[in-house]
Design a protein around this nucleic acid. Structure first.
Lengths: 161, 161
DNA sequence: TTTCTCTTGCGATCAATTCGCAACTAGATA
DNA sequence: TATCTAGTTGCGAATTGATCGCAAGAGAAA
């Protein structure tokens, strides 16, 4: 099952590249695999690090070029994660259902959120404005439950502090 | 009325800065004004250009520092607009109701969208996950109605072409 | 007015990404 | 299978967008 899904994704990548006059190179294949097998969002240097296990000579510029191609084909998504540190980007393989990202501005933890209302909102926007949506990125920032609690404690510090 | 609203915003900026131990400098005041009076999102060099009408000696580094402060106070929002060209950021004054941004990946037009479902989605996420939301950025990309039409025409070009 | 910090202007610097180009290779064709 | 050709890669240099360190400047509390 896992294998089947994987093969299906692979075929899709090949086909989609072809349709855009692009070649399925070893580099692009490995980079796409790295993202599809990583459950999480990776930045470009991390993609490079992982892909080099298969392709030791791989160059960072190639990673950026591949990410750009895959992004244009809608195979991966690009994220900012509220720029909690630096202005770099993160990448992740696209799945059937879009999800949102919440970044805690205190502890920097990132949470993935799914909500049926998000799908509904997207469909409603498409319908109302006549847009054809290709990407939808909803990034949230604030305090996670844990940090909200400690922030409240700091407002009312215990007598011993 | 317009004046009253403006004064109110100004007072709010002063107060909020104070609360964070920050000073209301001429630079910050002018930069906040530029964003509150521009109906649209501006990038940092454009903020500089406009603010220099009031403060000729203003430096770009100061603009970035002011934008950072105002962003932290929640007075302005930072946008990417799907990076349609370059990786720079855009800034806009925050209004009472968050809105979304749709960027046409063909003609690069940017549309602001409001939808009650967006407010509902945010409240639902806060409730379900215990997050305290401070920023919510929903950026959409795809084809606007006009470009979707011409894309369809290109798929089926007229005989004369 | 004085004083104490926070801020600014400035140029240097940094981080992230892109570019130019010669060598390489996927994959169509013979 | 060998050949051919346009898309791709590796590499280092270059670019872009944003940040830093520091001395001089300026809010605002007293």
């Amino acid at each position: 099952m896992v294998l089947a899904k994987h093969l299906e994704q692979r075929r899709s990548v090949t086909t989609q590249l072809r349709e855009h006059g692009l070649r399925l190179t070893r580099q692009r294949k490995v980079i796409a695999d790295v993202l599809q097998q990583a459950g999480e969002h990776l930045d470009a240097p991390e993609v490079l690090r992982r892909a080099r296990k298969q392709l030791p000579g791989l160059h960072l510029a190639t990673v950026y070029r591949a990410l750009e191609s895959l992004k244009k084909l809608g195979i991966i998504d690009e994220l900012d994660l509220m720029h909690v540190n630096g202005h770099g980007h993160f990448y992740e393989a696209r799945t059937s259902k879009d999800h949102m990202h919440f970044t805690c501005q205190q502890c920097r933890a990132v949470f993935e959120i799914q909500d049926e209302l998000f799908e509904r909102l997207k469909r409603q926007i498409e319908g109302r404005h006549g847009f054809t949506l290709r990407v939808a990125r909803l990034e949230l920032g604030g305090l996670c439950a844990r940090c909200a609690v400690s922030a409240r404690e700091n407002d009312h510090p215990p007598a011993s502090a």
